[in-house]
Design a protein around this nucleic acid. Sequence first.
DNA 1: TAATAACCTACTAAAATAGTCGGGTAAATA
DNA 2: TATTTACCCGACTATTTTAGTAGGTTATTA
Lengths: 162, 162
Amino acid sequence: MRLTTKGRYAVTAMLDLALHSDQGPVSLSDISNRQGISLSYLEQLFSKLRKRLLVTSVRGPGGGYRLSRSNDDIFVAQIVDAVNESVDATGCKGRSDCQSGNTCLTHHLWCDLSDQIHDFLSQISLEQLVHRNDVRQVAERQNFESRQSCFDSDKIRAAIVD
Amino acid sequence: MRLTTKGRYAVTAMLDLALHSDQGPVSLSDISNRQGISLSYLEQLFSKLRKRLLVTSVRGPGGGYRLSRSNDDIFVAQIVDAVNESVDATGCKGRSDCQSGNTCLTHHLWCDLSDQIHDFLSQISLEQLVHRNDVRQVAERQNFESRQSCFDSDKIRAAIVD
DNA sequence: TAATAACCTACTAAAATAGTCGGGTAAATA
DNA sequence: TATTTACCCGACTATTTTAGTAGGTTATTA
């Protein structure tokens, strides 16, 4: 079962995109600032998300990324699947050759678990997440912090100019 | 979320123990032969399983391991928990400090998922697994193969003596 | 044309996994 | 009592994955 920061970062970034989609394309550096994820790492993740047609990109100044579908048509499972190979809990990726060509003793148990996890994450859309209270609260804090840091960096820039 | 061969091996080994518990203590080398898991690796895993009081050990010739409780009182979640630190899907281990001290945007989602997985694995006992058809079939094949390999190694030994 | 931001490839440090190796120690049996 | 069996323990290691860097190219807009 593969569910690490990679998948978590991807979902977090996509949710950030959903939360700020009203302001036109969202740049990766904005996401990087708000979510504390390194820019280059985000680039790698969004390359995969784009290939899976979950986002579309706009180049040049004022560019960034947009969700390719509406919030209620993108599900957490799709995002995790896009960046990890799968959310498979078996070691053999469902091929049933876990014990040197044969099925291992617990193969079916891990298949059941994989289904369970996949079903759970397949039912959660970005739309649902956007409306959760805990998400809204964290998002509000992040917006405030990122405005602050813009203000701070403006002050620093001004100081340098002086 | 940590669920790799480590946890899978542990559950497989414990299930092997449950399947052969009628024949007295089961040695790790038996489990190693039947399940294709390296002996030294099994030793590491069983050290943890013993500390969590899931198995008891019997030393000396004819010794091995026994389940410390009945099959219906040992659950898959307990086994996985014993060898991994947890089946936690969050990156912060539930501490809510995922984004440099603060809660990250998707923290609660991963908490929900962790609960989901834990609930699922907490409901599955070794007793249930022992009675599954797919498990019985694999176990039967493994018993046959391990008898074969004993027979083979006897023949080899006899050939060497000659 | 200067700045911005996506896009792309290759590299790398750190961590975790999945072991190996070499020695113990305790208990049973011959 | 000697030997065997099998648990016990710690240190070491190869491989893989994760997470992140570095350095460039391409497209767009002001």
